[in-house]
């Protein structure tokens, strides 16, 4: 059809090579323990790979902006879903850190 962007085969091949290289990178970095940065690094590499697939294989880079808007909204709601759930579940144990005495003395203070 006229006006449809045709991604060249060289571009597609380059993206594939980059994806395989990033797969090797994530496998390598998983062998090194960098503490709290283990998960962010793995997610950053996976996110870059996903971005390459979305932009070039799915050609969102050359597509109508409305499709990018839909996809971005979907991703946004996943982020909302994930972070707001973790705001609850990841900090549940912290309630146990509240000292009983503290609450007790506050209550007594309120009675007086």
């Amino acid at each position: 059809m006229k006006g449809h962007h045709i991604t060249s085969r060289t571009t597609l091949l380059k993206v594939f090579v980059a994806l395989v290289a990033l797969t090797a990178l994530t496998a390598l970095t998983a062998q090194i323990d960098i503490g709290v940065f283990n998960i962010p690094l793995a997610l950053a590499i996976a996110g870059s790979k996903a971005l390459l697939v979305v932009l070039f294989f799915m050609a969102l880079k050359y597509d109508k902006p409305v499709n990018a808007l839909f996809f971005a909204l979907g991703v946004l709601f996943v982020v909302v879903f994930l972070t707001f759930t973790l705001f609850d579940t990841a900090f549940r144990g912290d309630l146990g850190n509240v000292g009983k005495e503290t609450i007790h003395s506050t209550e007594e203070g309120a009675e007086e």
């Binding site: 994530t26 998983a30 996976a46 790979k49 697939v53 294989f57």
Partner: peptide
């Protein structure tokens, strides 16, 4: 493919 990209690591 993208789903698997996240599942693997």
């Amino acid at each position: 493919d993208i789903i698997w990209i996240f599942l693997f690591p």
